[in-house]
């Protein structure tokens, strides 16, 4: 395989992984603009170190690892500013805990953004990106058991934040909460 064939196929495999990589970035960062910057940095980093990628192994896992490391390194540089991104969504969420039926993706994003980063990435990798616990543990550089417990905590926290419980299915809350909600954001 010549050098140019290799890079052609590296590029092709990378392109295939990009939609998922971007979905990981957006759901992890919570802000599409910031997430796209992160994806761009990841593409450049990955390109520069393509010799360290072994063809035939998972490009997706490799890219996710680079993106994740980049995310945390940027976060350390910027301090805690990242956690502040959920402000507007957080306010909305606080006022309508029982809105089961009207739960939309915006609400979900707000709830996801409220999770600590380690729990957020764990539940995304396992619940949405399609990685096994072992693969997710490799990406995050931690033990499989740690991923499992983070996923559990994330799932419980999301249920609490979104108040998806049996009672809300049947109680009067759903309706009154949405009225309160409308009042609060008006």
């Amino acid at each position: 395989m010549t050098k140019s064939d290799e890079s052609l196929s590296f590029k092709r495999v990378m392109l295939e992984a990009l939609p998922s990589l971007r979905a990981f970035a957006v759901s992890l960062v919570g802000q599409p603009d910031r997430a796209d910057d992160l994806v761009q940095d990841t593409i450049m980093k990955a390109w520069a170190k393509q010799d360290s990628f072994t063809m035939g192994t998972s490009m997706k896992a490799w890219l996710f690892t680079i993106l994740r490391n980049e995310f945390y390194s940027q976060m350390r540089k910027r301090g805690r500013e990242v956690s502040d991104t959920d402000g507007t969504f957080t306010n909305q969420l606080a006022v309508h805990p029982g809105q089961y039926g009207a739960l939309d993706l915006q609400d979900f994003r707000g709830a996801l953004n409220k999770l600590p980063e380690d729990q957020r990435e764990a539940i995304i990798l396992i619940g949405a990106s399609g990685f096994s616990y072992e693969e997710a543990a490799n990406i995050c550089g931690c033990a499989t058991g740690t991923i499992k417990s983070r996923v559990n905590r994330a799932r419980n926290a999301l249920q609490d934040l979104l108040s998806i419980t049996n009672e809300n299915d049947f109680g009067p809350d759903a309706e009154s909460a949405s009225v309160i909600h409308r009042g609060a954001i008006a």
């Binding site: 590029k11 990378m14 392109l15 990009l18 939609p19 998922s20 971007r22 979905a23 957006v26 759901s27 796209d36 994806v39 761009q40 593409i43 450049m44 390109w47 739960l103 993706l105 979900f108 994003r109 996801l112 539940i123 995304i124 619940g127 949405a128 990106s129 799932r155 999301l158 249920q159 979104l162 998806i164 419980t165 049996n166």
Partner: peptide
């Protein structure tokens, strides 16, 4: 049921982003 809803919402959210496709700027960059 509650766990399923969280999982479903997460997947729905993720897939909705994934379906945006690859922004032009990334293709240009590559």
């Amino acid at each position: 049921g509650a766990a399923d809803t969280v999982s479903e919402k997460l997947r729905e959210y993720y897939v909705s982003i994934q379906n945006d496709g690859i922004p032009e700027k990334f293709l240009d960059l590559l």
